[in-house]
Amino acid sequence: MPKIKIIEDDLSIASELQELLNNAGYQANITKEFSNVLEQIKKELPDLILLDINLPRINGEILLQNIRREYNIPIIMVTSKNSEVDEVLSMSYGADDYITKPYNPTILLLRIAAVLKRSERPKDKLIYHDFEVIPQKGILKKENEEIILTKNEMIIFLYLLQNKGKIVTRDELMTDLWNNDEYINDNALTVNISRLRTKLDKLGYKEIVETRKGQGYILHE
């Protein structure tokens, strides 16, 4: 379970953020004392840091530089300063991403997942049961059998796969699709999911994508 350190002085945001991250399967830690953040990082060694710029007694940008000097931990700046200059500065100091408040929580989770994925050693193969997923080619491959997925179907399938065993809401799927520049509407999402099901059926996986009424979908392990 990836550890995420939240460096944020607004207590209400910090605790809500912690709940959001814990629900999403991360182990989130709140920072209460800002004078010795570097030592805390040394002790906790988180997998990712969410860092606010406006902090008591310390400037977030300087903290960012200090962390960068010693650690290679991915850092996402989360701030209400939304000027280009601030973003360019943060990125040049070594931040991995820059998100402005208020943000859409689903998008924050997507960005966290993306940054974590980048810092991970690349996995050679994405495998679900006995078939291989090749996102670049849009192919599901089982021995000699190949099934081609459209871009939308692949985005949906990958999201379900990353969250397999968990309920995925339509809104999450929609956000992920829009985040990938596929601005589809509700009907199109329904059509895409049913096509994906048909294709998975062909590979011999009947009803592995279950509909939970009023909640969303779930890909069984």
Partner: peptide, 14 residues
């Protein structure tokens, strides 16, 4: 003001 708005957004989501 963006801080309480962020807070509210997260609360609603949670």
């Amino acid at each position: 003001v963006k801080l309480p708005i962020s807070s509210l957004t997260l609360m609603i989501h949670n």
